[in-house]
Simulated assay, not measured.
Amino acid sequence: MQVSDLPPSPRRPGSGSARVPSRRIASKLGLAPGTAVFIGERKRQSIRIDLLDFDAAVVHEAHDVSVDDCAGHRDTAMVTWIQVNGIHDIALIEALAGRFGLHPMTIEDIVNTTQRPKCEEFPDYCFVALKMLAYSRASRSIVAEHVSLILGPNYVISFLEDEGDVFDSVRNRIRKALGRVRTLGADYLAFCLMDAVVDHYFLAVEQIGDEIELFDERILMGPRPGDIQEIHHYKSDLIKLRKAVWPLREVVAAISKSESRLLRPEITVFWRDLYDHIVQVIDMVETSRDILASLHDTYLSGLSNRMNEVMKVLTIISTIFIPLTFIVGVYGMNFKHMPELDWLPGYYVVWAVMVVIAIGLFTYFRRRHWI
């Protein structure tokens, strides 16, 4: 185990090496409950475990540690934060879970990246599953990663799909002894991690909200053929946000009302504040969904208006040419005795009549503001 006082390189959601095709939920069919099967996109790199040990006086950091190193910090007097970057190695996850006495059903939820946010209490630990979200401007979509937290008496274990997270602010507060995180124990550390995740929900919702507002302004100037696909793209992102945030409200509500010995009453006020933040995020998501629904109606109305304008122009042109076509049709008939056939100025008079009719109809339409 290598101990370092230097901060690790900055990491962001979605960073990491290339991925291989994901494993489907169907691979669990027929297996006994509690069987650990990784559901998600396979990673080629090996799992890395980072460890951060601290109390009010000192902080120790270690990177790329072993399962045995982690187990040695289970019963220390200091608060320990163990972060597991990668959950695709079932053998390693089960080995770490065995050292901390995790239930097989908990292991199953940890390695299932499709698991909805939930909270479960066990005699020796609490398990929380949630989603870490970020808005990727490159792909213009929401990127979601599965996060699992294990809260023990004096430790927190965080499981991430890949390297890259939103916990840099928490690490800096621990290193620099900012705020209460060094003095309020493991349950407050778990709150800080979840609070960091929810704070980035605000950022993701605001970014996609800005995109929708710009799209709204552009679509009012005139709909384009690809706009309906853009609307459905934003709709799928908002659905992804909603599926991550709505269940988390129930999770935090259950934690704030929990009587577990691992969740001390003096921390309850912080959980209630986190609940309020989640409700704010939900309100922002619902507002964006309402705007998007109105955008769909605006797009269809715009297309209908454009079609009406085209049909109006075609109707006006047809109306102007109908009498002209009638005159031409009459004098195009093959009758031998027609009064005007032998009339010398007849050709010019017919042209004059048709021009007067066309100009008269055009002037009438302009005065009625139809063109």
Score class of each variant (00 low, 15 high):
Val3Asn: 08
Ser15Asn: 04
Arg23Met: 11
Arg42Phe: 01
Ile47Lys: 15
Asp53Asn: 14
Ala62Asp: 04
His63Thr: 10
Val65Arg: 11
Val65Glu: 08
Val79Trp: 10
Gly86Arg: 01
Gly98Arg: 11
Leu102Gln: 08
Thr106Arg: 09
Ile110Ser: 07
Thr113His: 04
Gln115Met: 01
Pro123Lys: 06
Val128Phe: 13
Ser139Ile: 05
Ile142Gly: 15
Val166Glu: 03
Val166His: 04
Arg171Thr: 09
Arg173Val: 00
Ile174Pro: 08
Ala177Tyr: 06
Ala190Cys: 13
Cys192Ile: 00
Leu193His: 02
Val205Glu: 10
Gly209Ala: 05
Ile212Trp: 02
Glu213Phe: 09
Asp227Leu: 05
Ile228Ser: 06
Ile231Ala: 02
Tyr234His: 13
Arg242Pro: 06
Val245Glu: 03
Val245Cys: 06
Glu250Phe: 01
Val251His: 14
Val252Phe: 01
Lys257Val: 05
Ser258Tyr: 05
Leu262Pro: 15
Leu262Gly: 12
Thr268Lys: 12
Asp273Lys: 07
Ile278Phe: 04
Asp283Trp: 00
Glu286Asp: 13
Ser288Gly: 05
Asp290Lys: 14
Asp297Ile: 01
Tyr299Asn: 13
Leu303Glu: 09
Leu303His: 03
Arg306Ser: 01
Lys312Pro: 12
Val313Pro: 07
Ile316Glu: 07
Thr319Leu: 08
Thr319Lys: 12
Ile322Phe: 06
Phe326Val: 04
Gly329Phe: 00
Pro339Cys: 01
Met354Trp: 00
